[in-house]
Simulated assay, not measured.
Amino acid sequence: MERKLTRAYKKAPGPSSLAALAEHYLRYQKFDRARKLVEEGLLKYPESHKLRLLEQRIKRTDLYEEFLKAGQEITENPNPDAYANLAALYRTVGDIDKALETCAAGLAKFPNSVRIYLNVAELRISRYARDYMPRDAVIALANLEKAVSLDDTDYAAAILLSEFYMAVGAAESAIHALKKLLVSHPEDEHAQEMLDKALEMSRRDEPVEDLVRDISQKRRMAVEAGLLCYLEKCVRGVQDGKVRRRIDAEKTSKALTPALEDTGARAMVVLNPDGSLAAEARQEGDPINTEALALATREIHDNTNDYALRMDLGSFESGEIEGPFGHILVNSVEGWLISGITSARPSNRERMRKRMQEVAEDCLLTAPVIDEAQEEEEEKPDADTAQPDQGA
């Protein structure tokens, strides 16, 4: 099996074939090989969801003894530190949701644990820094304030609360927190430096929640402005903030065909981040209009994504809609949209999502990166075809 998977990877290198080989290594406890392969794969395909999940699995394997010890301590001798330690391990492997779940379980048993409140705040702040969801920042603030109210001499909680206030511009709140901190830590130079900065930027405080939402709104406007600039270029490919890729439409359409057969979908489409139709496939003889499916896909994504952002629920990942036309399932994969339509609600929904992810891994994330300089050079008119100067 290993030889077969190795040959498959060499014949068609990509995140899916690489992940299959890495999973084989993990299954047979060849952890060093799996780790090296995944690390190399992420350098080539940093957007690959499969490889990111494998990276998490490998990290959890590396920390197996620590996870086992933390779990045993919670079972045999439950205490706040045990829950905090387990949450920290989940954070290390990148599983923020599981870390927050562990913290919630710990606070249910130990509602006065400063360390667990501090853990929740750190987790929420890290996610806020990534996604700019105001709800995360507001919850982080509530947990920090709770931690400090339980023990105003706890340096880690008090300094992080002060840094939070400073970061969002709540100078007066920062001054108040830092003055209290300096009572218990009068010689702390870092706290004194922060207090001096807070006094310099001091102004009439706005509610911290409003400041957080203002930051998020400005960030969202900046993202939308960047997206508009991108749409104006109308360049085919993907814009993920770092690279754009030009996909092979024919290859992608061919990859959709077995997905149709496996899931029973009438048709499937892939849309570029600019909304244009990148690839399509439909059952032979089916009169369905793939342009209409593409339009419906864009509408499902745009409306759902807009609502989710306004409600601080995060960005769109997947969605479904059902009507007399059938059932449409939409997945967002690193900027692309992939959708399929069936005659009725699919019983194999997870299989369809899996097939969509495979198409993304094999056809989209492996597409060549667009060379900006080369693209601009290609767009310049040839000297032979350039129009003569009318004023000559």
Rank of each mutant, 00 (worst) to 15 (best):
F110K: 05
Y128R: 15
R115C: 07
T75G: 00
L144F: 14
Y128V: 15
P78I: 00
N112M: 06
L123Y: 04
T61E: 07
V114H: 04
K109V: 06
F110Q: 02
P78R: 00
A147K: 14
I139A: 15
L141S: 13
S126Y: 06
Y64M: 09
K109C: 06
A87P: 00
I116Q: 03
V148N: 14
R91K: 08
R60Q: 12
A147R: 15
L144P: 13
T102G: 02
A87I: 01
Y64H: 11
F110C: 03
R130D: 13
Y132F: 12
A137D: 11
D95P: 09
P134T: 10
F110G: 02
E101Q: 06
L68C: 04
Y132D: 07
E145Q: 15
L141E: 13
N85P: 07
L86F: 06
S126K: 11
L100S: 07
K69Y: 02
I125K: 12
R124T: 02
R124D: 01
A140T: 14
N85Y: 02
N112K: 11
K146G: 07
R127A: 11
I125L: 14
T75E: 04
K59L: 13
V138H: 12
G106F: 02
A142C: 11
L144Q: 13
K146I: 11
A121V: 09
R135C: 09
A70Q: 01
K98M: 07
Y90D: 01
R124C: 08
K98V: 03
L107F: 06
L63V: 07
